[in-house]
Design a binder for these strands. Structure first.
Lengths: 136, 136
DNA sequence: CGGCATCCCTAAAGATACTG
DNA sequence: CAGTATCTTTAGGGATGCCG
């Protein structure tokens, strides 16, 4: 088992886990990373470690509760590391782990897609709503 | 305005919209596509149009309510098209629009990442929980 | 500064029943 | 088959207050 190559391991995972199955652990993970705070947090950490207060400023509108909660979850899942500098007052830095870095391109792609396609979506919504209102 | 190239338009969008801002439309769109049903639905339509019943079978555990609701939203946002064949009983097919196709690679990447990295995440969780329990 | 604990409330999601 | 309507439950998330 320990002699599997990275490619073999990837193949193994592809066969063993299926996010379409409700009870599959991969489904739960998909659910967890399909979260706006996750994508915003990971992309915010793209350029290097950030302090808690810096993150809360970057990600406008995030409550302290959601920020802490999301950071804890990401830390537990091994995507983000937390390092405390015991000064007074205390300084806490968050950074991406290698696992977090592996997810980063995808998260950036989502954020990018949203920013570059919102105008098309807005047009589509107007068209859809107009169709529904006047059934001409 | 109408003479802008696709590249120029992309540049424009990148500058104009910022998902980090809570009130930005791109943030709402990011929130909307950061949804497990959206990723599962779009990837399910990757290989071509599918009927409603087929989708509900593919995506195990989805309720009619969530399936219909998500499909409606995606249709309104211009990511999915809905075509009705007025037979008895009626037949409804869903397919990706060009806009939906543009998002597909990202959604597939998320689903893939979840399936190929769940084992690493599980290990990370065990490590984290063990650390918390026995403070070595 | 960087949290955690608690209360509270709304919106999202599941279950169930019914329909063109 | 492909939904809609209604009800109930759950979980997301904001506000506040306290602490090392």
């Amino acid at each position: 088992m320990t002699t599997r190559t990275a490619t073999q391991q990837r193949e193994h995972a592809r066969v063993a886990y299926d996010a379409y199955l409700a009870t599959c652990p991969a489904r739960q993970l998909l659910d967890r990373i399909s979260d706006k705070w996750v994508s915003l947090l990971l992309t915010a950490l793209a350029d290097g470690p950030q302090r808690y207060s810096s993150l809360s400023r970057t990600i406008a509108g995030v409550s302290q509760k959601m920020l802490t909660q999301t950071l804890r979850t990401l830390e537990r899942d091994g995507l983000v590391s937390r390092s405390v500098t015991p000064t007074v007052p205390v300084r806490v830095d968050y950074a991406l782990t290698p696992l977090g870095v592996s997810l980063l391109p995808v998260m950036q792609a989502i954020k990018d897609w949203a920013e570059t396609h919102i105008e098309q979506v807005t047009v589509a919504r107007d068209t859809y709503d107009k169709r529904s209102t006047s059934p001409g």
